[in-house]
């Protein structure tokens, strides 16, 4: 009997003692090292504009609907999508009628926006919701189909937009891992920065 009480007392002490080290000192140590070595990442890879306002994170998608921006993947996060405090996917299964209807609707919208024929085959990432609902990346094929629309809406030469897409494309990491992809957040941010520079400092007239 005495042993039983001793073991419970020991369990209680162990919980508290380990908590101090594993839940207190360990996260603080990681916090210290992270802010010493990688402060930008540890704070969320935030995108800050010229006026010092936080406009988002390079890793977290926002919704874009205007023709002058590249559009991210559809999102099922939160009630209105792209809710960065409420991540998640649609969790609709392969034989879901609701999912098939959503995809049909997104296909029609995507073809109309980008001037594609009514039976055009569309990249899968453009019409399916991502797992997190915050996927900042689209496939290079998807970006290539959107580039002419963005160039036209912004009055930029298509070549220049394609060059920006190239700069915001990431290859397979170390040539091995993952898939090639284009980051919509940094790309759209760069498009706006470009516009702002032109406004402040127009190109010299000939």
């Amino acid at each position: 009997m005495k042993n039983i009480f001793a073991e419970f007392g020991r369990s209680f002490m162990a919980t508290l003692f380990f908590a101090v080290i594993l839940c207190g000192l360990y996260p603080l140590l990681v916090f210290g090292l992270a802010h010493l070595l990688f402060p930008r990442q540890a704070n969320g890879s935030l995108l800050v504009d010229g006026s010092g306002t936080v406009r988002g994170s390079a890793l977290i998608a926002q919704d874009f609907t205007a023709p002058g921006y590249f559009h991210p993947r559809p999102s099922a996060a939160g009630a209105y999508g792209y809710d960065a405090a409420n991540s998640g996917g649609s969790n609709l299964g392969p034989t879901s009628q609701a999912l098939a209807a959503q995809i049909a609707q997104r296909l029609a919208a995507y073809r109309a926006e980008n001037g594609l024929p009514a039976n055009a085959v569309v990249p899968a990432d453009a019409v399916t919701a991502s797992g997190s609902g915050l996927d900042p990346d689209i496939s290079p094929q998807n970006a290539a189909l959107q580039a002419p629309r963005v160039a036209k809406a912004r009055g930029l030469p298509e070549q220049q937009v394609r060059e920006l897409v190239r700069q915001n494309t990431r290859r397979r990491q170390w040539g091995i891992f993952g898939e090639p992809r284009v980051n919509v957040m940094t790309l759209n941010f760069a498009l706006d920065e470009l516009a702002r520079h032109f406004a402040l400092d127009p190109p010299p007239q000939k």
Binding site: L92, D135, R170
Partner: peptide
Amino acid sequence: DGNMEGKEARFG
């Protein structure tokens, strides 16, 4: 492209 519903573009 396979079944991309619920998957992330960087992972494929």
